[in-house]
Amino acid sequence: MKGTSSRLAEIIAKHEQDLLAQWIKEQTSAVTQRPDLMSEAELREQSRALLNGIRNAVQRGRLDDITGSEWESVRELLDEVSRGRARTGFSPTETAMFVFSLKQPLFSRLRAEIREPEALADELWTASVLLDKLGLYTTEVSQKSREEVILRQQQDMLELSTPVVELWDGVLALPLIGTLDSARTQVVMENLLQKIVQTGAGIAIVDITGVPTVDTLVAQHLLKTVAAARLMGADCIISGIRPQIAQTIVHLGVDLGTVTTKATLAAAFVVALERSGATISKGR
């Protein structure tokens, strides 16, 4: 393996301070430098920590594989740097450039130290591949943390898209739209129960017109919601059961017997008004 005979470790260790100074100069003059997003002190600190980490890792670990335990602290550092930068608005490319920009000062140093052309070529190759791997690692982390941000936003949207509305004094309606997976149903159920407490409502209409599939999991969630609402003193009506859903529920064997169900939200509302003692006159 080329890695073991490399002089990289020795050269980095010997010239660490000098390399760091060159690298920071390189970064502060580069177009990808973003003084608007990060102070120079912070940039210095990140550079110092990374170079120090690389120095320690190349002394003990392999140069052609950054997944080993010797590289763990470098990976952790890059995790932190990439996530931090992603949060403050750096693009993944800008973050990768932070690592790639070490190439220039390191290569200059290697050229100054190694006189023999073949040996120099080998070392340049090793160093280049190593920094490429570290740079690409930051890209992976940035990608992941972006996905995390998107997931969080999706979860926020779940809450937004399930508003509980007060239709009438003491009558709440919860129009459900879309796929009812467990995470979402949990949020929906909690919202409804909270609103029942807040408003002291006696009737809650859960409308499933917008739910494409009612399987046993969805049915169980609905039944749990109804039971929990009852414990809070509110009666539930499930509305929006389309004919095809009704037939399918029967075949599944789900028993909604104890729950009032209506085909439409309007029909459910009429029942709710009757129960809450309001009189309805047909305006003609």
Partner: peptide
Amino acid sequence: VDQTKIVTAASE
């Protein structure tokens, strides 16, 4: 109705 039945069975 048949769509809904098989979609629901698939889901289960």
